[in-house]
Design a binder for these strands. Structure first.
Lengths: 247, 247
DNA sequence: CGTCATGTTGAAGTACGTCAATGGGGGTGG
DNA sequence: CCACCCCCATTGACGTACTTCAACATGACG
């Protein structure tokens, strides 16, 4: 009963979420045909590899992942965390090759698309093509914000920003409960995302725990004092929460 | 003779550059109609304002500019420098509003497009729409690289990276001569781009000058030893120079 | 001729990095 | 069931690459 194991776009549980804009029937129908299949991967699986030219693009349905760049000397830069609803592989889709890798941090389920079909999408579905560009612009916007934080903010602010952004994104994706949101990442991953050393990340986290700003244990993140956390960030960095496209 | 002052897309001097892919006649024709006009601005002019929803999008034709985010406390993050051929305002085009500002650093000439026409572009010209997405992906890729440098590299590497990237981009745009490429920016701008203080940027620049890696004076940048400069960077960060779209 | 913007340089402080050691949990094999 | 190991979190000590403060130089401009 394989077909029962594949989520139909019409029934996609993500589709109903308020963070995503709703689509007319015709476009949903196109997406259903555009969708080449579904895969489930284990934690640690490489979805896309820096420098490669993947024939497949993905939208995360379940589970959490991470995008990162590897430098020659082994240092890493985590670009972003991957949540359900995120589209990954656009670089492979339109450019020569991926400039970063994508890895599953937990078990993940992903929607699979064929890179080769992308052109037909632009020809037949300008509205979805527009949405794809929208997604790219959102990603660019996020990276600009990350650059500003990493470039200008001290360690404490960086950590609060990183965890708060992740927390809010999880909430919008309907993840987590009273015990907080899932956080399957290591402190090393957080450090690599924020341009900090592991040791300093750990010590700053301790300070934030002691001040009751947040709790982070058992792979769960809990923002204990949202108002104080947000007050530590620049008001300019608060993004409006307009519904975004889901491809 | 106003119409003589406006460059026709067919005769656009940028179009012939090898850095840009060539377009079929029909698409060029569309772009000519898509183009709403041209403007010339003075140094210091604000082209796009963070938080605003500009009705106009631009492609730089001549001159140099800068994209930046302003933080509450007055700190700035320079996102990127704007060169001829760069498309600016995509965020305003597809999202609610710009997340950064764009300012002219020298006198500039820009191609003007109406945001309202963007949708017709997607409907009528899927190939150009694809190119637009391509541009967004390039920008995302650049920001990922910048994030990795600012997050992981020491001051000297950051400066070499920033100036080398700018230098190479200028060269591809046909700017500069034996005396080097134009560099109308202040050291403060460079510092704000790389997440360094002005003082430290200055001292690191001095060290690089003394080691004959580069020269920077009279608003001119010259890479005196390209091979040594490139050797200071991660090989992973060398981007392939495939022809990119020009909108 | 003053004022302003930018570049330069020295001195002092500090936020951060590196090094190193410890401890706990979870798996695996004897 | 214990022994061992590996991964990750934690903590202290120490070094340093950076920031901040401050002063001065230079050229452009009115």
């Amino acid at each position: 009963m394989k077909k029962d194991m594949v989520t139909h776009c019409q029934n996609c549980p993500l589709r109903g979420q308020s963070q995503f804009k709703s689509l007319p029937e015709e476009q949903l129908d196109f997406l259903r045909r555009f969708k080449a299949g579904e895969i489930k991967v284990e934690p640690g699986a490489q979805l896309l590899l820096q420098g490669s030219n993947s024939p497949q693009l993905f939208t995360a349905l379940e589970g959490l992942g991470v995008r990162y760049k590897t430098l020659e000397d082994g240092r890493r830069q985590v670009i972003n965390f991957v949540l359900p609803g995120d589209f990954v592989g656009l670089q492979a889709g339109v450019m020569k090759e991926m400039q970063h890798s994508v890895e599953a941090s937990t078990a993940m389920t992903l929607c699979v698309f064929n890179r080769a079909d992308l052109w037909s999408l632009f020809k037949a579905q300008p509205a979805i093509a527009f949405d794809l560009t929208w997604l790219a612009a959102i990603e660019e916007s996020f990276l600009g914000e990350a650059l500003a934080i990493v470039g200008q903010a001290p360690a404490e602010t960086r950590i609060v920003w990183g965890l708060l952004r992740f927390h809010d994104r999880c909430r919008m994706a309907g993840l987590g409960d009273a015990r907080g949101v899932p956080f399957p990442y290591r402190q090393q991953d957080l450090a690599d995302a924020l341009g900090l050393s592991l040791v300093h990340t750990n010590k700053t986290l301790q300070a934030l725990r002691q001040r009751q700003i947040l709790s982070l244990q058992d792979k769960r993140l809990r923002m204990l004092d949202l108002s104080r956390a947000k007050a530590m960030l620049d008001a300019d960095l608060q993004q409006p929460a307009a519904p975004r496209p889901l491809i």
